[in-house]
Design a binder for these strands. Structure first.
Lengths: 241, 241
DNA sequence: TAGATTGTTAATCGATTAACAATC
DNA sequence: TAGATTGTTAATCGATTAACAATC
């Protein structure tokens, strides 16, 4: 394929930028709902929690949708980002694994409000079949092929126990799913062309715990250092922060 | 503070490394449970889903816990990483916001199995007080100060509606919490010294949707390109991928 | 025109990776 | 000693940031 024949929206853009576009989208929606018609890159950057240089650099990958000296039209920019990220239409998704977390996800309004429409709840435990959650019946995992084919599903959310994760992922892929959002804390192996993203809630807590412990250690070190200094230790060029 | 007086565990290590240490910890636990006594960096890297150069580089920030020509003692390395990341002891946490997601989090076994002990469930809706979830009573948010003081809580998990997020965060910080895991899709502003991490499930889906759409666009572009080529267009040095 | 703000350039910073000397 | 594997170096890559020319 030639660069000339490639539509603008198909060009490579940095992953870090891709990950921030949904944040900008949300901030623009909030601005729009607050009745703001126009905003500067600085306004939007504040709303999104980034700095304005980064925001402008990110937007520059999509094209040129602002007006120098003026700023951005909120609704227009929102439309452009939505179109670019594929969020200008609905995505059918399935949720596999209807335990505590799967149920919470089935009820999560943040999916539907952002264009993700849950078309089926699937669980490997056939005993669960027929139970109704968030207005949808729980169906046996064996139904996945027909559900995926019928609704044209390409994105699946997986909230199953770790030991089942790889097996379930294989079945999802076999059924035609090409993007998986994985809530199980396991490394999945999938064929090329299938995208996996992982949400690992306990890893996030562990990262926080590391920084908490560091605060404590630094305090202790400072205390010990104070003692050393009181005893006459001389600070050297090794001194840090 | 001098570098000499600083304990090894208090030295700066890259954020990207910090975020991967819990992954290594989990992989080591799995290896240990499978009865593996020793592993090479390559073994562990495969189990953790990274490449071995990155793994060794990461571990080099903690110290030198392997043996050249041999590899790592699984339990010893696990112990060292746990100690370094502060996961060799229990962390008391509170969960604020006991909706669908908060309830799922209260029941989530992945927290307790990794050293996080939920000491209280708090909700702003006083009607909820007294309800029991995962063996714990739901308590009014007003109890947060006493709970935090009593159990020495520094880490809080927040699963409240977006419109309440900033207010609740302010209360958590006022009560003495210095690390927040935020499940609400909102930008929080907190004082310096307070760490916030965000889990945004719909952003993850949106990133997947972007890549899905790109697959489709690229296919279309390839198709269109094929037509152009059939019509005699000549590929140039601009050709991509 | 003067003031404001974008889009882009270039410098800087941090993370990844391959290669290999050190060493068990 | 020979083979294996770590820990480290140096090169590369990608992301961030500040500064500013372009332009409304």
């Amino acid at each position: 394929m030639t660069a000339r024949s490639m539509p603008e929206s198909a060009r490579e853009i940095p992953e870090a930028t891709v990950a921030r576009l949904p944040v900008y989208l949300r901030a623009l929606t909030a601005l729009s709902e607050a009745g703001t018609a126009t905003c500067s890159s600085e306004d939007l950057a504040v709303a999104a929690g980034v700095n304005s240089a980064k925001l402008r650099k990110d937007l520059s990958h999509l094209g040129s949708y602002g007006t120098r000296g003026v700023g951005y039209d909120v609704d227009y920019l929102r439309h452009q980002i939505a179109r670019f990220t594929g969020l200008n239409h609905d995505w059918p998704v399935v949720i596999v694994g209807i335990g505590n977390l799967g149920q919470a996800l089935a009820n999560y309004s943040g999916f539907s409000s952002r264009g993700f429409h849950v078309v089926a709840l699937l669980d490997a435990d056939r005993e669960r079949a027929g139970e109704e959650i968030a207005g949808l019946p729980v169906r046996p995992l064996a139904d996945i092929e027909s559900v995926v084919a019928r609704h044209g599903v390409t994105i699946g959310v997986m909230a199953v126990p770790t030991h089942a994760a790889q097996t379930v992922a294989d079945r999802m892929v076999a059924a035609g799913i090409t993007s998986i959002l994985n809530f199980a804390p396991s490394v999945l192996s999938v064929p090329a062309g299938v995208n996996v993203r992982k949400v690992d809630m306990s890893i996030e807590l562990q990262i926080l715990a590391y920084h908490e412990q560091r605060k404590t250690l630094l305090d202790q070190a400072r205390g010990a250092d104070q003692v050393a200094t009181d005893l006459g230790e001389v600070a050297t060029e090794e001194e840090v922060s």
